[in-house]
């Protein structure tokens, strides 16, 4: 089943390769002119264009691109001067770490909240849950981020300065996974670990507040429908305790839609945390892509789109596996 799913993803990835190539070429702006600088004349622009291979027909450019891709070469970013591969390797883990910690935080609050709201519909718990998640989702992330910085860094002084993944007094941990929390833990460097965690808390909270709403609302709805099922009545008629009925029977059945929502939330958070990355000077993939896009840095943009596509394919695979683990009916069909 897993192999089948991977095979299904191949045409998707190929499609993404083609589309990202065409889209980046369709962008307005001429990278050659940009890099030649405002004082350049026609001749030097043409020279740069030739050096970048942009004078060749589109078809040929595409073949060069695919050929390079096959060798694992994503090209060189014009803005950073590094290979796109190394840029992504440095920045993708930063974004992933932020998003994952934010989602863990969000689930840790939203799922119990949703369950509570579903078991007591119409009571103050339910209303409180509704108010909280509505407030979270109605404030834009850059605003929440700035408010959090103002309160916890500027006023209270408990948070570190919002300047990236690690304060300058620490050295970044040896690169293993690129996730600072994991790398620091692997190295046994707990001081750096706490340093990285402190930097993470504010941006992660900002994102978590934003993602509370879909998860909590979906948990509540799924729990309500699970609790009104026939098998819950059977369980109650058999005298099973509240805890068993709620968690052993209702919650596991409610997990399926919650996992679906989680997948969607993860996708949009990863793509949409550019603003949070900007506010907290987080060296993530979102801000990288936006900068590349502004200057028509083809290689970087293509690399970003491809990386995201692969990530989503992997994510969908994980969600499918999670489905099969939760629901025995799915694995067989």
């Amino acid at each position: 089943m897993i192999l089948g799913r991977v095979a299904q993803a191949i045409p998707v990835v190929m499609g993404v390769v083609v589309i990202s190539f065409i889209l980046t070429r369709a962008l307005p702006g001429d990278p050659a002119a940009y890099f030649a600088g405002p004082a350049a004349d026609e001749a030097s622009i043409a020279e740069i264009r030739e050096a970048l291979g942009l004078d060749k027909p589109l078809f040929q450019q595409f073949f060069y691109y695919v050929g390079d891709l096959a060798r694992g070469d994503l090209g060189t970013s014009l803005t950073t001067g590094q290979t796109v591969m190394s840029d992504l390797a440095a920045r993708l883990p930063a974004s992933l770490e932020l998003t994952l910690v934010a989602l863990l935080l969000s689930c840790g609050i939203a799922i119990p909240l949703g369950v509570l709201a579903a078991t007591r519909p119409g009571t103050w718990v339910d209303h409180l849950c509704r108010i909280l998640v509505t407030a979270g989702v109605s404030m834009p992330t850059f605003f929440t981020g700035i408010v959090l910085i103002y309160v916890f860094y500027y006023l209270a002084g408990i948070a570190p300065s919002p300047l990236g993944r690690l304060d300058f007094i620490y050295l970044s941990p040896p690169h293993v996974t690129g996730f600072y929390l994991i790398d620091a833990a692997l190295a046994g460097d707990w001081e750096t670990w706490f340093g990285a965690l402190k930097q993470l808390i504010l941006p992660a909270t900002t994102l978590a507040l934003f993602t509370l709403a879909p998860i909590a609302r979906m948990t509540r709805a799924a729990m309500l429908s699970a609790l009104s099922s026939d098998f819950i009545r059977t369980a109650r008629a058999a005298g099973l305790g509240t805890r068993k009925v709620l968690y052993g029977y209702a919650f596991r059945n409610a997990l399926l839609p919650v996992v679906t929502t989680l997948g969607m939330v993860f996708s949009f958070t990863l793509g949409a945390n550019v603003l949070v990355e900007k506010v907290f000077a987080w060296p993530g993939i979102g801000s990288y892509a936006v900068e590349a896009l502004v200057v028509s840095d083809y290689a970087a943009v293509q690399g970003f789109v491809l990386a995201m596509a692969l990530l989503f394919v992997a994510l969908n695979l994980i969600i499918d596996i999670a489905y099969a683990l939760i629901d025995p009916r799915i694995g067989l069909k």
Partner: peptide, 10 residues
């Protein structure tokens, strides 16, 4: 409706 009366995933 016995099939619905049983927990489908246990």
């Amino acid at each position: 409706n016995p099939r619905a009366a049983l927990n489908p995933i246990r």
